[in-house]
Design a binder for these strands. Structure first.
Lengths: 213, 213
DNA sequence: TGTACATCAGTGAACGCGCGTTCACTGATGTAC
DNA sequence: TGTACATCAGTGAACGCGCGTTCACTGATGTAC
C-alpha cells in the first residue's frame, strides 16, 4: 500500500524547512534584512549546506515566491471546489469562499498575517524581471479566479450598477492586502475580517435579486 | 516685506534633499537595502556630512516617516478644507476629496506610487516601538479624518445597511494601499483609480437619499 | 567698521564586523552487477 | 550477498567587499561688543 505522494527525502525536508524560515523572515523584515546566517542558525546547518540547496540568495527568494504562488493557487482552487460542491448559487459560493480566503490569509506563518507578494513588491528594485513576473503571476491568478466566479454570478443576475468585474475582483485582493497591513500595524481586532464582511455586503447589494423577485 | 515662512538654510536644504532621496529609495527597495553610501553619492556629500544631519540610519528612517506623516496630514486636511468650501453636502465633499486623495497617492516621489507606511510595515522587525507608533499614527490620522466625514454624512442620511463606519473608513485606506501595490506590479492602467471609483459607487449606494425622496 | 568668538555644515581617514560566496573535501545512502 | 562506484547532503576554512559608525579636524557664516 504505497502512497502516491512521494515521501520527502532528507534533503527535501531541510530545503523546505529553509523555505519556511525564509518566508517568515521575509514577511517580518524583508528580503534584504534577512541574512543567510540567521536562517542556517535556525535550521541547524552550516553555510555551505545552505549553498548546496540554493545557488544564491536570490535563488532562495525566487523559490520562496514560487512556493507561495503554488500554495495560494492550490489553496484557492480547493476552497472554491469545496464551496461549489456545497451549493449551486455562484454568489453564495463566492461569498463563502471569500471568508475562507481571508481566514487563510490571517493564518499565515508565525501567526502574523502577511502577503509575500506585497512585501516583495516594496523591494522590487532589488530583483530582476523574473521575480517581478513571479509576483505578478500570483496577483493574476487571484484576479482570474475571482473574476471567473463574478462572471458566473453576473450571468445569472446582472449587476445593479455598471461595473468592471476585473476591478471588483481586484478590490477583494486590495482589501485583503490592506487589511493585513492595518492588522500588523494596529493591534485592535482583525480589520481584515471586518473589511471582508463589508465587501460581501457590497457584493450582495450589487447582485441582489431583481426587484421583481 | 518678509515672508513668515522661514527661508530654509543651507543645512536644511541638504537635509531635506537627503530625506527625499531616502524616501524614494525606501519605497523602491526598502530600508535595509538602502545604503547611506548611495544616498550621499546622489546628494554629493561625504559620509560624515550625512552623520552631521542624522545620528543613525535609524534616525534617518524615523525622520522620513515623520515627515511623511506631516505631508499626509497637511495634504489631507487641505483637500477636505477646499472641498468643504466648494459644497455643503458632506457626501459630495467626501466623494470629491477621495478622488484627490487617490490622485495624490499616485503622484508620490519618482512618479511610482507607494505608501511609506505600508513599506515600513513589512520591515517592522527591524525597528523599535517608536517607529511602529509613527506608522500607526499615520494610519490613525487617515482613519479619523475619513471617519469624521462619514459621521457627518450618516447624520444627514442614515446608511442603508448596518455598517461600522471605522471599517468603512479603513476600506478606503486599504483600497488605496492595495491599488498602489497592484499598480506597481502590473503595468496596465491605474487600478488604484478604478478601485476608488468603485468605492465611491459603494458610498453613493450606502448613503442614497431615502426612498421617500 | 573691525576684531573675537561661536556655531554651522561639513571633510578625510580609519575601524571592524557581518555579509554573500567559493572551493576542496567527506561520510552516509543508493544502485549495478 | 558482497563489492565498486555514484550521488546526496552536507562540512570547514577562507575570501574580500561594503556597510554603518567614530573621531579629530576645518572653512564659511553669524553674532556681540
Amino acid at each position: 500500500m504505497s502512497t502516491d505522494v512521494k515521501a520527502p527525502s532528507r534533503g527535501e525536508r531541510t530545503r523546505s524547512h529553509l523555505l519556511d524560515l525564509a518566508e517568515a523572515a521575509f514577511l517580518e523584515k524583508g528580503y534584504a534584512a534577512t541574512s543567510i546566517e540567521e536562517l542556517i542558525a535556525a535550521a541547524g546547518l552550516t553555510k555551505s549546506g545552505f549553498f548546496y540547496h540554493f545557488e544564491d540568495k536570490l535563488d532562495l527568494g525566487k523559490a520562496v515566491l514560487k512556493r507561495d504562488n503554488d500554495v495560494i493557487r492550490d489553496g484557492l482552487t480547493k476552497i472554491f471546489e469545496e464551496e461549489a460542491a456545497k451549493q449551486d448559487d455562484p454568489l453564495e459560493v463566492l461569498l463563502a469562499a471569500l471568508v475562507r480566503y481571508a481566514e487563510a490569509a490571517m493564518a499565515s506563518p508565525a501567526s502574523r498575517p502577511g502577503c509575500l507578494a506585497a512585501a516583495f513588491s516594496y523591494q522590487q528594485a532589488l530583483f530582476d524581471t523574473e521575480v517581478r513576473d513571479l509576483i505578478r503571476e500570483g496577483f493574476d491568478f487571484r484576479r482570474a479566479m475571482l473574476r471567473s466566479w463574478l462572471d458566473r454570478i453576473a450571468a445569472t443576475r446582472p449587476p445593479r450598477a455598471p461595473i468592471d468585474l476585473d476591478t471588483l475582483a481586484d478590490m477583494a485582493i486590495s482589501l485583503i492586502q490592506g487589511g493585513i497591513v492595518i492588522d500588523r500595524v494596529r493591534d485592535t481586532g482583525p480589520a481584515l475580517r471586518a473589511q471582508m464582511e463589508l465587501y460581501r455586503t457590497y457584493l450582495r447589494a450589487l447582485f441582489a435579486a431583481p426587484a421583481g423577485k
